[in-house]
Design a protein around this nucleic acid. Structure first.
Length: 259
DNA sequence: GTAGCTAACGCCCCGACGGT
DNA sequence: ACCGTCGGGGCGTTAGCTAC
């Protein structure tokens, strides 16, 4: 089994004309501009590396924030290879009996999938096994529940020598690898990555109608008897009227309910 | 039977935080 | 700047329990 520790750098839209909405493509808000990867064998020995710049096609100007953060210039990006070629190289790089993708936070896997989908390329082999090293490092370094540690802090706390800049895909993949080696234990097991499908929300509620049979079933269950036709229509009406809140009476806040 | 209380659960919003 | 995730808190629903 091989571990593929990788990191990505993204570019994104920016509203250069202030006051206007940024020009983000909802199908791909983060475009991959660099990938750095390190391949490890079972014994955590490096058996391959990959460091590639990708020429952007969606956002052809650098977001100033990204430029500042990564230090990448448009000149360098223009010398990069296409996403399709990079993905082909990456696919060959990870090819093995069993490869586990190792990432700092789940975002990189998610955005990789989204970029692949955007370019309508063949998805990664399924099931995609991955390890979120950030999550394990946060636990190992006693972070508060719900708090994820940053890569720089994790490296510092684990005494990883800092010799090159963060926010470079290859350097970050290197630091992630070093952190992984330091925190690894036998409890760390790969997960299967399943792309999330957007769930229901309040805005999409208009696309739904009342499930009358289930509503009636619920009343029949609670009252342990069958509802008549009249009762069914009263239940339906009450359900609809209830949602309008038109018979709500404001409660005096001074009168507190007994505990 | 009715009313009140409460635990468990699900859903949603919001803020903190981390990613580029 | 912008996006995504997570947990806490608020709120509503359901169901079980208790007291009357």
């Amino acid at each position: 089994m091989n571990y593929i520790v990788f990191d990505l750098e993204f570019n994104q839209g920016y509203n250069f004309a202030k006051g206007t909405k940024s020009l983000n493509n909802p199908k791909c808000p983060f475009e991959i501009i660099q990938i750095g990867a390190i391949k490890l064998n079972d014994h955590f020995e490096t058996i391959g590396t990959l460091d590639v710049i990708v020429k952007p096609e969606i956002y052809t100007t650098l977001n100033p924030f990204v430029r500042e953060l990564t230090g990448i210039t448009m000149e360098e990006l223009n010398k990069g290879i296409s996403f399709e070629k990079m993905y082909e190289d990456f696919s060959n790089f990870i090819k093995s009996d069993r490869s586990v993708l190792c990432v700092w936070g789940i975002a990189d896997i998610k955005e990789l999938f989204r970029n692949i989908e955007f370019y309508e390329l063949e998805p990664l082999p399924s099931p995609t096994e991955y390890i979120d090293i950030q999550s394990y490092a946060s636990t190992a370094l006693d972070c508060k529940k719900g708090i994820n540690i940053g890569l720089g802090n994790a490296a510092k706390l684990l005494s990883v020598p800092i010799e090159s800049q963060f926010h470079d895909a290859f350097n970050d993949a290197f630091y992630t690898t070093e952190v992984f080696k330091k925190i690894y234990n036998k409890e760390i097991k790969p997960n299967i990555y399943i792309p999330k499908v957007k769930g229901l929300n309040r805005l999409s509620a208009r696309n739904y109608k009342i499930d009358l049979p289930s509503l009636t079933d619920q009343f029949e269950k609670m009252f342990k008897r069958e509802m008549s036709i009249d009762e069914k229509s009263i239940i339906k009406l009450a359900y609809i009227m209830g949602k309008t809140n038109q018979f709500q009476i404001k409660i005096d806040p001074e009168i507190k309910p007994k505990k």
